[in-house]
């Protein structure tokens, strides 16, 4: 057996560096990353990268900054396994590897000129933050922007400072709800589905972008359908075990689709008749 260097290997990493770290919640940490070659990461909101730590492993992570921010990009990592554990120990200046971006993000060209209904549950805000920043940076190009967010308790709320800023903007309608409040919480109580009936929408102008835990989709879709939003105008980002990012290893397969290449963002119409999607 011969071994040679393979320059065009798809498993080659791009060298990168952590420039800023911030603890968001007990479980989630925020990382700002720059690529060593100085070039911007060319991506679209909704895509993900594979973060690699040689000797420890790789983990697929959603990008949570907007491509309009060119010099660096942001990731939020929940500590759930060996790779994310190791990531949580990193500090500014530490080296990491990046593969990607991979997959298909939100359909930016379709969204332009339309109203947006952005619905995020829990960690779902992470990829949506990329989209929200992108929309706010190009605010003129969109109609009304409604953001509905939900999480378990006020402590789990990500980017509370940014939510505060968004809620004050005249060009954004933001509502937040938590399953269980605490004495300081003054916002809504209840599941995210309870926020949907209250909003008024034009089903022919709206695109709904929904990201949340697997269990959330079924119930949110029921509410969106009550509002007569067509399936072609509902976009979801699905979570699966993504290993290679190249549509080969098989772990992220959803019926005929590979989440890492065909998704992670799918229109609800594209998932029709796919038994394994939702």
């Amino acid at each position: 057996m011969k071994k040679v260097q393979l320059v065009e290997s798809p498993y080659i990493i791009r060298k990168a560096q952590v420039v800023r770290v911030r603890q968001l919640t007990e479980m989630e940490k925020f990382f700002e990353i720059t690529l060593k070659d100085g070039r911007p990461l060319d991506f679209e909101p909704g895509q993900f990268v594979v973060v690699t730590l040689p000797g420890i492993g790789e983990a697929p992570i959603s990008i949570c900054s907007s491509p309009t921010k060119r010099r660096s990009f942001d990731l939020v990592v929940r500590r759930v396994g060996s790779v994310t554990d190791a990531l949580h120990k990193l500090e500014a200046g530490d080296k990491i590897g990046i593969r990607g971006p991979f997959g298909k993000g939100f359909p930016l060209l379709k969204l332009e000129g339309n109203d947006l209904l952005i619905i995020g549950g829990g960690l779902g805000l992470v990829p949506l933050r990329s989209m929200i920043h992108f929309v706010l940076d190009n605010r003129r190009n969109y109609g009304s922007v409604t953001i509905l967010l939900g999480c378990k308790t006020p402590k789990d709320l990500l980017f509370a400072d940014e939510l505060q800023t968004w809620s004050k903007r005249v060009d954004v309608n933001l509502s937040c709800t938590v399953d269980r409040g605490d004495p300081e919480w003054k916002g809504h109580l209840g599941l995210i589905t309870s926020l949907i009936p209250k909003i008024s929408i034009d089903p022919e102008r709206i695109y709904a972008l929904v990201v949340g835990p697997p269990v959330m989709y079924k119930f949110v879709i029921i509410e969106l359908k009550k509002k007569n939003i067509p399936e072609e105008r509902i976009y979801l980002s699905l979570e699966r075990q993504m290993r290679c990012g190249l549509g080969k290893c098989g772990h992220c397969q959803i019926g005929v689709l590979y989440c890492c290449q065909d998704g992670p963002v799918f229109s609800l119409a594209a998932l029709k008749n796919n038994h394994e999607a939702l």
């Binding site: 057996m1 071994k3 260097q5 393979l6 290997s9 080659i12 990493i13 080296k95």
Partner: peptide
Amino acid sequence: NCYEGVLEFES
């Protein structure tokens, strides 16, 4: 700080 792609093959 070296990281390279590898191809294993046998003719």
